[in-house]
Design a protein around this nucleic acid. Structure first.
Lengths: 246, 246
DNA sequence: CGCTGTCTTGAAACATCTCAACCTAGGTGG
DNA sequence: CCACCTAGGTTGAGATGTTTCAAGACAGCG
């Protein structure tokens, strides 16, 4: 519970780094963000931030930790629709009386802040709009992944995407990053069985494409892996959204 | 080619009926829409309306015909990400210099109109916002479908969704509607093989849940089918978006 | 130390794919 | 008007990928 509040200040900047990467923010926007983040609150793992079909209380900015959009079928089958990472938004929506179209659950302990109000044509507004566009792009990628990739490709492709997204906030550097995912959660994200996910990860390991120890994932031969699953980076604006770091 | 221009005027109203169902439009909005529709242009089947990674020229309203968002993998595998039906929008996006995140291709000959400009708090703006929210909901439904439903369920669920969406514009009535889909296209939408789609459709037929002759689909025992695939209607605003018709 | 959750392994069952052939209806050109 | 041609639908048999179930190993934590 208290863990978050003792985290180094530096870590709280991931969200700002991401939003600045999406549209170059100026001082006023940044201080508004910092103010909002200063009042961030903690959400424990497994807590639901939004419930499908219920009203959306207020849009949130993820400062730290992971969440996921999830759908549970009546017979208990579970599908994670998307992951939500630091610097990304929960429940941004712009029509009146909005209902959540999916439940959102915290995968880890999280820190979340209110999204500050901003003028319609500010850089922050642009950044949020790009963020929304990216979110849609990630949903489309998830559809193609589930529809047309085989088990190994799905896992490789998802890990590449997570790396790309974490690179935006510079949480991931040089092909290595922390994922708070059990193989069971991963299975429910890529539409497979935990057992089969396990076997495919081992296969990727044996092929030297992946190291996964504890929560740390390292992508070896990122290029090879990307070519193997036929993946190209997600873009929604003129320049590539991913900084050329690494 | 000329077919569209000789279609009964009535048919052109489907788009307006849908938008009115999403938010009650007043006279000025409706006449703006009618003006835009009056200047609609025809797009032949197979033509691309948007290309992934290229700039979005202008948002379009589908007046008649079907389109689909599609992604093609380097090795030729194809995945339809979503279908776009009359009354729905193509390329609505609100950040500067937007790039299309997916290619959009006409599945049939189509009629498309410009989306009229509207005041930020007009009923039309609200209707468009709800339409965007619905589009997201449909993407999420597609993810759950591909990730956690088996072949038969995927097909049943998709047909139920199409029926629900076509009901919004009152194109579908009483469980029966026209789909301009070959089994091959359907296969690429539900992530299966055409051969397997064929077998599953026959299975649904034998079970008395479905009649499919030519382009006309009739859902029998809609309730049973919905229960079988564990489906509930998509909602993004306070009331159910689907008129209680039939 | 003994839980408990997570990862790992094996063997058999099952769902879906592949390939190849055939059928049918509609449209076109001779 | 027929003969062909094509796109789409249908069928069968075997191969493959993924799931299921059940059991064991491992690690972190109270």
């Amino acid at each position: 519970m208290m863990r978050q509040s003792t985290a180094p200040r530096q870590q709280y900047d991931a969200a700002i780094r991401r939003l600045t990467a999406l549209a170059p923010l100026e001082a006023p926007d940044i201080s508004a963000l910092q103010a909002a983040i200063g009042q961030a609150r903690v959400v424990p793992a497994r807590r639901e931030l939004l419930q499908e079909g219920r009203a959306i209380p207020e849009p949130l900015l993820i400062v730290e930790g992971w969440a996921a959009r999830v759908r549970i079928l009546i017979d208990g089958r579970r599908q994670f629709l998307s992951f939500l990472l630091p610097g990304e938004m929960v429940g941004l929506c712009r029509h009146g009386q909005p209902l959540a179209v999916s439940t959102v659950v915290a995968l880890t302990d999280m820190t979340v802040a209110r999204v500050p109000d901003c003028a319609p044509d500010s850089a922050l507004a642009e950044s949020l709009a790009v963020s929304i566009a990216l979110e849609e792009a990630y949903l489309l990628a998830q559809i193609a992944r589930l529809g047309r990739l085989n088990a190994q490709e799905r896992i490789g492709d998802l890990l590449l995407e997570l790396h790309e997204r974490l690179s935006l906030s510079q949480i991931a550097t040089g092909g290595s990053f922390e994922v708070p995912l059990t193989q069971e959660v991963l299975a429910d994200a890529v539409g497979l069985t935990p057992v089969h996910v396990n076997r495919m990860i081992q296969l990727l390991r044996r092929e030297g494409l992946l190291a996964w120890k504890g929560r740390r994932v390292s992508l070896r031969a990122e290029e090879t892996l990307a070519r193997m699953v036929g993946r190209s980076p997600v873009r929604v604006v003129g320049q590539t959204a991913v900084p050329s770091a690494a």
